[in-house]
């Protein structure tokens, strides 16, 4: 299997070339183009019940797709995956460790990676990140995407992240929701509820937030 993230950073898309017999798991709707002999099979995203909970409370898709190049195909299958927002993608390697992904960040993963759904808690909900999060663990490669650029950040002391910017994190970090400043500044300073994150661990941030775009667009509609 070969892979390459192209057109970075603004309009990144992922090209995966699957040899006959290989497959990857991808977010529903992420596939933009593929070789004719590629086989696409939809399955519940994290089990039937988990998928429905994630659809309702996490804004995630109900299904994920298994994308395979069947054995005996005339050649490798080239598949292009894209994401809904303009922005970068990164390739992460799992080596027995676990990562939590926020809704919409997942693009695709290789076979050794297992996808699960985990309860994210009220703090995550208040931070605008949904009640559930995607848990990826095992061994293999995960591709994630974000709106804008993606920056990893190693956390040792507490950092404050505005809601809507966190897209992935290691399970060792602790996330609490809180106000950005006093009551007044929090309501009128435009930051509202923020996440206070303590390490040790690594987090991945997207430089832009969809809520920010939505608010900016909204202000021009009236």
């Amino acid at each position: 299997m070969e892979s390459e993230i192209r057109s970075r950073p603004a309009f990144a898309h992922l090209m995966v070339r699957l040899n006959p017999g290989e497959s990857v798991t991808a977010e529903a709707g992420a596939m933009a183009s593929m070789s004719a002999w590629t086989r696409l099979t939809a399955r519940w995203n994290g089990g039937f019940f988990g998928a429905i909970m994630r659809r309702i409370f996490g804004g995630e898709t109900l299904f994920v797709n298994d994308v395979a190049c069947p054995a005996g195909s005339p050649g490798p299958a080239e598949v292009i995956f894209t994401q809904a927002t303009p922005g970068d993608m990164v390739e992460l390697t799992l080596d027995g460790n676990t990562l939590f992904l926020q809704s919409g960040a997942f693009i695709a993963a290789t076979n050794g990676v297992s996808l699960g759904v985990a309860w994210a808690g009220i703090a995550s909900l208040l931070g605008g990140e949904g009640l559930f999060r995607l848990k990826v663990s095992g061994r293999g490669t995960v591709w994630i995407g974000g709106y804008g650029a993606i920056t990893p950040r190693q956390i040792d002391q507490e950092v404050i992240v505005d809601s809507g910017h966190l897209i992935a994190y290691e399970p060792t970090v602790k996330i609490r929701s809180g106000l950005a400043g006093g009551i007044f500044s929090s309501f009128f300073g435009g930051e509202g509820i923020v996440m206070r994150i303590t390490g040790p661990g690594r987090i991945y941030l997207q430089t832009r937030s969809l809520e920010g775009l939505a608010a900016w667009t909204n202000s021009h509609l009236l």
Partner: peptide, 11 residues
């Protein structure tokens, strides 16, 4: 709009 303007999901 003032209090929960950017509330998404369940909130």
């Amino acid at each position: 709009t003032v209090l929960a303007g950017d509330a998404t999901g369940l909130l």
